[in-house]
Amino acid sequence: MLRKGFALAALGLAFIGGPTLAATSQEEPKAVHWSFEGPLGKFDQAQLQRGYKVYREVCSACHSMNLMSFRNLGQKGGPFFDPEVKNPNDNPFVKSIAKDYQIDDIDSETGDVVKRPGTSADRFPNPYPNEPAARASNGGALPPDMSDLVKAREGGPAYIYSILTGYEEAPKGMAVPTGKYYNPYMPGDVSGFWSLDPNKVPIGGFIAMPPPLAPDKVTFDDGTKSTVDQQAKDVVAFLTWVSDPKTEERKSFGLAVMIYLLIFSGLLYASYRRIWANVSH
């Protein structure tokens, strides 16, 4: 009875957890192995640093990262965490990164709007002053904020990676609108732009972002070969960390909790069998 019930419940969850199909179509994201996968997975700090560089030199030209402060880069688990420097605000890497940014501020004496070098406590500045400005510079499309990007997309890291590396020449018969790019991994419906067999509409959609990465576009300080694939993997790892900077803390805490609960359950079960030993039921 109990076992049957659990099987049913599992079945039910499987149903509910199944992918929901939309009217749009897209290619299944590519299968990538990430170091941060699984209950024991950890971020590779060198990869996070490379990923940050890709973000800094490529993405940040258009994409904001509103929820992140410079200090976050130096916190535990972050790309520039240094076990010697417990307080991320004092981390020398963080300080020098922050200094490179010019932050809007108001002069406390004159009230003028001024620019000043950033400090660890400042947030990453937005590349555009406001949303209309961002849209105007990007053909009407708003580059999404990157702080939650991986969490906020079905498919997570694999999806972002697939988009970054998945740009394709538009197939013959497809009229790509100006300022748009065809990407089979982008959810969309291109049937309105397809002039050939209506039963063979290509999968995927249009994206307003031009292919952002190119070989050697970013020079990695650790000598890693700067291919598009490498850049994409690194920046996705960085963005995954950005989405949930407490991932590693959560997993290690969780492991301890699970072990504790397993032992606790075992003890309670033994206690239970012992107490009930005298009762026929």
């Binding site: 969490k151 906020a152 079905e154 959560r250 699970m258």
Partner: peptide, 29 residues
């Protein structure tokens, strides 16, 4: 108590290792 502990094991598996599995990704926009 035993049943609660086993239930908490499942709960913890979600909280610590797949906290967003039961939610909708779009809600992070």
């Amino acid at each position: 108590g035993f049943a609660i502990s086993v239930f908490l094991l499942m709960y913890a598996a979600f909280v610590f290792f797949n906290p967003n599995a039961l939610g909708d990704a779009v809600n992070y926009v």
